[in-house]
């Protein structure tokens, strides 16, 4: 039940990210979570949105450097130790969490090298998966 993540090439200069967000707004795409970090001259901003197909189309048409990939999206209980428990499952697989960020509420996005294996391992655990449909709600 992986979801789509949209990654965009952004330059470190005022207004660049805003332009990307304006493009999403123009096609009424709702951003449900994102991750931006300080990496120097340029960076990769990752988005989880309600309608990834629409977002990809709009960004590509505008000539933006953009790529789509699959990540896991999980809904955690809002309790101490929950994040440790979930990442513990992935650690046991001897797999790296490449990056992770939280979405709306206690939703978190998790990027790993092998989405299917991690998904299977997490399926046996008390944690709720979030689907693309859930994100549209």
């Amino acid at each position: 039940m992986a979801v789509s993540q949209i990654s965009v090439f952004v330059e470190s200069r005022p207004g660049h990210l805003k332009r990307i967000l304006d493009l999403l707004e123009q096609c009424s795409v709702n951003v449900r979570g994102y991750s931006c970090s300080d990496t120097g001259d340029y960076g990769i901003t990752r988005f989880v949105v309600d309608r990834p197909d629409m977002a990809m189309k709009a960004l590509k048409e505008a000539g933006v450097a953009v790529t789509e990939s699959q990540i896991l999206c999980l809904k955690l209980e809002d309790d101490p130790g929950e994040l440790a428990r979930v990442f513990g499952v992935i650690a046991k697989l001897n797999m790296n969490v490449k990056y992770s960020y939280s979405l709306i509420s206690t939703y978190i996005a998790v990027g790993v090298d092998d989405v299917a294996t991690a998904e299977e391992a997490l399926n046996n655990q008390p944690v709720e998966f979030v689907s693309q449909q859930d994100l549209q709600a």
Binding site: Q5, S7, F9, T39, Y42, G43, I44, R46, K60, G63, V64, A65, V66, T67, S69
Partner: peptide, 14 residues
């Protein structure tokens, strides 16, 4: 100038 097809979702690759 990067071409859209050369962009990847990985800081390491970029």
């Amino acid at each position: 100038e990067l071409l859209p097809e050369a962009f990847s979702d990985s800081f390491n690759e970029m």
